[in-house]
Amino acid sequence: MRPDKTADVKALVITGFGLNCERETACAFRQAGATAECVHLNEFLSRRRRLDEFHILAFIGGFSFGDHLGAGTIFANRIKCRLGDDLRQFVTAGRLVIGICNGFQTLTRLGLVPVLDGKLFTQQVALAENQQGAFRDDWVLLAANPRSPCIFTRGLDLLPLPVRHGEGRLIPADERTLAAIERNHLVALRYADPQSARPTQEFPHNPNGSVAAIAGICDPTGRIFGLMPHPEAYLSPYNHPHWARQRLNGVLPQKGLGQQIFDNAVGFAAQHLV
């Protein structure tokens, strides 16, 4: 990959209506070498801007419409009603979409993950209220699924990231849906026990009681990815709660490990989409 091509990758961070992670998400894409722009949703609804100006679309974290009527519900409904065709064209063109936290909730309500049986825009999984019944901010350990087609998690093994949500318990529509997700390796990240590194249902390592410890899933192409934890909140090595101890033990990484997710996306886009 030539470095000049990554600079041609254009990443879109959609803002507005209570979303709030635009600055750090744009920073992550820029660190990966892409050009990142934060644009208010209304600019697309009013047709002043177009989704197809971009190669990567990020639905970011935050509280769109205050999570009223359920997280992601109103934002997804607005996009479906007023920007649905553009979004369909964007994903069918094979461009990349990442949804983080509120963005993941929006993706599930839109039906952009897991897209089983080719059913785009059909909701197949839900992100329900955490089993413990409250919002929680903590760091968790994630184990990546090496067999997943997910572009964003390529080459990852274990990844510590912060979670901060009240509605993150993934519930598939039924047993068949879960089986199909597993069969197609659409689970990209699972909550893991920090001792064994195995997937866990145990609180607080699995912070929300997610079925099969699912923290992030993708569509069968691996180009649409949603996750509850926040990779954009671990761009600096000093974000990790134990950075001082890591440094003492000589294992403080050069960059925050969340950066890898964005590096993967921008690298892929530079190779295939520019």
Binding site: D137, W139, N239, W243
Partner: peptide, 22 residues
């Protein structure tokens, strides 16, 4: 305290709760 977000913006270095078990 954990019901309050303290990581958004990705700027946190020494957090409100610390130690090996945070």
């Amino acid at each position: 305290a954990r019901q309050y977000d303290h990581e958004v913006k990705g700027l946190s270095v020494v957090k409100p709760y610390v130690g090996v078990n945070r």
